[in-house]
Design a protein around this nucleic acid. Sequence first.
DNA 1: CGCGACGTTGATTTGCCTCAACGATTGTGG
DNA 2: CCACAATCGTTGAGGCAAATCAACGTCGCG
Lengths: 193, 193
Amino acid sequence: MNIAPIIEHFSNYLPLSDSEILELKSKLIEKKVKRRQFILQEGDVCKHYTFVVNGCFKMYKVDNKGLEHNLQFSIENGWIADIGSFYSNKPSELYIEALEQSTILQIAKPDLLYLYSQYPKFDRNFRVLIENAFISLQKRVLQNISSTAEERYLDFLKSYPNLFNRISNVQIASFIGVTPEFLSKIRKSIATK
Amino acid sequence: MNIAPIIEHFSNYLPLSDSEILELKSKLIEKKVKRRQFILQEGDVCKHYTFVVNGCFKMYKVDNKGLEHNLQFSIENGWIADIGSFYSNKPSELYIEALEQSTILQIAKPDLLYLYSQYPKFDRNFRVLIENAFISLQKRVLQNISSTAEERYLDFLKSYPNLFNRISNVQIASFIGVTPEFLSKIRKSIATK
DNA sequence: CGCGACGTTGATTTGCCTCAACGATTGTGG
DNA sequence: CCACAATCGTTGAGGCAAATCAACGTCGCG
């Protein structure tokens, strides 16, 4: 099991000591996931925090018309989980699906709670992680209520330079909240400028 | 200075010990704020985490047309800050303004960092606080990209039962991302059902 | 090879905005 | 305490952004 990426990841925050690394390693579960495979489905309780070693995931909701709405993407060195379901133990309304062949490292809830209780550094690091995610999400909310679809698309390209050329425009449309047809028209309009 | 509300607030998470309460108390700044007064303005760095003892605040962005877009409300026992600006020390793009005569307790950034470093419980409690805020924000993003304005309005009434009758419909419209005129038409349409 | 996902285009419809106007309410200064 | 201004909530006419529906060629993959 290659845990170097996650150790490297934490070194961007408060780096882990040798004993913390050992404890963390003993809690990690490595998995290989194929394209289109789910690591969370609607109705299931989200039981793991997932770190993406390589590959790409989307987390989305299916509305009552059967349409998908992408809430989040995660690629290398990113995290993904329905933390509402994770902490409440309630069934999730979300799906997490691999967009590419991927390798992940998962921590089960009891193990994460154990790490929190024994090593305050994990409280700290996960606080900072989620603060950063929160800040990004606030920007997205502001954009949704104040920008046009074209502005949101251009901002997506700027915000996810390593992602936009790896996923289909259908996925991008679902993330920024427009139909694929309309995104195609936006792209045409931008190209002819 | 009445710090009972904030102590009571933390008791919903990991309750503070006597020494933690004393330390926290020594860091808190109490302020009275009048209606329409700002505790953060665009261009300023957000230097405090603010706990609302009583009253009501809105945090919003002003776009390039001069229109306000409400990102967040906070009332009694809630927190409010531009945490992006707070941690990065960069000028904020947001305003935080009192909608009512209010009383607040503020913690300056160096003092919060000190509490984090000395008492892991604050790392823990603020992690849980922001996790909850993050979960709410995720729901809002999903709604913005998948629901009609009427659905967002009805959900706002359900999600903020103690708030909607305290603020004007202009403020609600700005929060859910529609014009006040259109919200008025939504309300009429709901009433005639 | 054949099927399904993708990207695109066009015609039509609709949700929401813009602008303008109005009375009712609230707030404020003299 | 009154007069006036400002904000609010509402209504209507018209316009635009984006959705819907349908169709078609392309491509990758099983």
